[in-house]
Design a protein around this nucleic acid. Sequence first.
DNA 1: ATATTTCTCTCGATTATCTAGAGGAGGGGC
DNA 2: GCCCCTCCTCTAGATAATCGAGAGAAATAT
Lengths: 111, 111
Amino acid sequence: MTETSATLVQGTLDMLILKTLALEPLHGWGISQRIQQLSRGVFEVNPGSLFPAFRRLERAGLIECQWQTSENNRRAKYYSLTKAGRQKLKSETKEWERQVAAIARILQTAS
Amino acid sequence: MTETSATLVQGTLDMLILKTLALEPLHGWGISQRIQQLSRGVFEVNPGSLFPAFRRLERAGLIECQWQTSENNRRAKYYSLTKAGRQKLKSETKEWERQVAAIARILQTAS
DNA sequence: ATATTTCTCTCGATTATCTAGAGGAGGGGC
DNA sequence: GCCCCTCCTCTAGATAATCGAGAGAAATAT
């Protein structure tokens, strides 16, 4: 059993979803699997976090969806990035890097 | 005017406070100034976030405080790390690095 | 005097996440 | 046929960290 994070760093879920969808359109369950796999088990995305995030992102016009049949022959809602979503991913990533760099500076400050 | 972050990445404030106090004991207002300075203006810590964090950390036995007179001759509550606080800083930092690395892996995944 | 800086703290709202479920539909084994 | 497992959807309520917008007090500067 790999160790998994108790709570996801707040505010990063949207970015991770956008990034996952930038790789390829995917349905909700698949996105959660993909994030877990790409993070090598560090992140497990709870459906109770995931679906509210979808509503949020869709309402903001960053993703759009359409019902389709999955590889396993099940009805699934395939999400994909909109143009605005691609832009948002870019800006969120940049902001994330900026904040991570700032935190790194603080953590590396020697006494 | 330097750009400042609208919202702090949630969950990192405690770590930043602990780190700041690991450098040297400091009062609340000073901590907020220090964080802003060390992050080069990326983070501005709202008092409405800061003081709840102090209560949280003190209740958890990670920091302790004592009233003292500041450099500017004002009464100030000087906080310092406890032993448990030093340990917590270590473990939180490690967990943070782990999650940042995982996110970096995801963000760097090429399509 | 008055304003500014330093320093304390609080209250209410917002919002993202977690916990803990329900439910349906396909496929495989018996 | 029947049952279970996997895939896949979604919801409701609680928790908790942060923000926004203040109040207040004391020392110093103007």
